[in-house]
Amino acid sequence: MLSPIDLTARQESSILGRTNPLVKLGIALGWLIGLGLMHDPPRPMALALVAVAAGLVLGRIPPARLIQGLTPLVAAAGSIALANLVFAAANTDPAAHELIRIGALRLTAEAVVVASSIGARVVAIVATGVVFAQTTDPTRLVDALVQQARVPERFAYGALAAYQAIPRLSQDLGTLRHARRIRGVGCDWHPKLLIGLLVRAIRHADQLALAMDARAFGTTPRTAFRPLMWRWTDLAVGIGGAVIIVLLLLA
């Protein structure tokens, strides 16, 4: 069953776990921009290693979880590198150094560099993303978005409430498939399943909206039960993240 990431107490009380989600989001975005400026394999790989190390040490992510989170994504990232290898403009450039030729396919040294640096870039993006998700409680993220980034609160908490429905919806999907089987129409992945799932999702949304309206949602600007304040760790982590990307860009 699909369920949102469940942080362990250690993860939550770790340095990254207590860092303001906006700071982590800012770092991740800053790194993303920095990665866009790097066109070599080693520096993105270094950044990926930093992210993983930070996740293990500062985020106390259990290694098994980190690996579990990274593996399928790195595999998906490999396909992007492959596309770059095969379709690189350099492959058709007569001046480029040819490495191999299989029929119409010509791979050049330049293309390999491009593909491996893109591959490294994607691995770095994946690593940052997994570390972010594995140290951030969605409720805290939305609290911070509303209290500190001034995201409209009705939309933010509405989205959060919908997000909490994921386990329920994935159970519903299982039952929809069971129903098709026990009623003798087979249990393939029929498009009707998507419709059935959306029907359920919308009905759940209706009920949730009713329950939220009944609890005065959106009637007046809210107060916060979990007020967030900027802390020194936020500053330290933020500076650390900025220093790393600047150093790498200068390297």
């Binding site: 969605p138 409430a161 939220m212 009637t219 039960f225």
Partner: peptide, 19 residues
């Protein structure tokens, strides 16, 4: 389908925050 927030205390507080 009436639980809005993940944690028990947050959910109880939800209606109060709204007010």
């Amino acid at each position: 389908s009436q639980l809005v927030m993940d944690r028990v205390e947050d959910d109880v507080a939800f209606g109060l925050e709204n007010r």
